[in-house]
Write a protein that binds this DNA or RNA. Sequence first.
DNA 1: CATTTTGACGCT
DNA 2: AGCGTCAAA
Length: 437
Amino acid sequence: MPVARPEPLASRVIAHVDMDCFYVQVEQRKRPELKGVPTAVVQYNSWKGGALIAVSYEARKFGVQRSMRGDEAKKVCPDIQLVQVPVARGKADLNLYRDAGSEVVSLLATKGRCERASIDEVYLDLTGAAEQMLSATPPDTLEEIDEEALKSHVLGLPNDPCSQGEYVKQWLCRSDADHQDKLLACGVIIVAQLRMDVLKKTSFTCSAGIAHNKMLAKLASGMHKPAQQTVVPSSSVTELLASLPINKMKQLGGKLGSSLQRDLGVTTVGNLLDFTEEKLQEYYGRNTGTWLWNIARGISGDEVEGRLLPKSHGCGKTFPGQQALRTLTSVKPWLNGLCEELSERIQSDLEKNKRVAHTLILHAEGFKVCEVPTNRKFPSKSCPLRYGTAKIQEDAWKLFESGLREFLDLQSNEWGITSLTVSASKILPVPAVSLLI
DNA sequence: CATTTTGACGCT
DNA sequence: AGCGTCAAA
């Protein structure tokens, strides 16, 4: 459940940068002939043409959506180019996209604290950079403002397409603006420059949101895509949230959001204003209640963490339908393959980033053929992580066997495994001195 | 038992 | 330690 954090005392400038249909762009950079044509990236393709995980904007015009099957996409968009995710050891291999994501993070981490939020998203705390710009070269003194910054969307401004650029220029350069808005204006210019730099150096476009906190920045980055940016002045927040469907807010797209709608009749984020903090706490607990009360007002104290690398590595594969693994002999090679990939990834993390993983975790899902139907799930198991592919394979196999015994509970001899995942967590930097010894 | 493969974080 | 929720390609 979400937890409320105290708001920093001073106003911050926060950006959320989100790559546009990222996997598609990565494939289009590799194969330039795909640029500008309807394209999607699919995982596997033998079952109904594979599952779409990224869709280009050209393809979206035809109604192609993520989660569609390749065959289905071909029906609504016969000319669509379906590019397959690379496969290694019989499973999808996402390393190409991880590496492309790292390229982007390196460029975005140069202007302030940067948090890698996912393979293709970051949060930036640009407060310092914005303050510095405001004191040295405030926007109203600039002779020329980047065209990219002028193309920004400013929430709350009249959206007359003819004079949009003029309004934006006026907003950016208003010398009578309050300090908060001036800082945001600086953020807009910095983010425009960062996005241009990313495009120039990687050929990837991205969209961005600029606001006073992470929640609003994230909301804004999704409002105008692809390749655009949106700023959220404080004065626009009440109206924005008043009509924002509750499930569009981060963290409220699932069960909590549905429960707000079902149990309290809350349809929009603004509707939350009808409830006292105490009432929300009564329903959802102290932490979540306060968090809800705050987001209704556009308040979110979440800090941008300075973290450019993932906190864990995982490798998994599902075995749906007839593919379920029904014998120890069939599980073993798959588990070994997953461990091999994991071993390579943590070894590379050690060499590139001087970090060591300390815990190995095995997750599985399965079913058993049983007289009395049971709800028991396959239990997750963990142990200290020892480096070396063979050791990881050995340890993961022990974890699997112990999980399977618990799962079967002496109830059944007939079973199937439908998903296997190994992951490495508790990743810590190796102290610099210990590298010398 | 056909989206799949990730990854972060909160609760107990 | 292990489970559940949420999100995005």
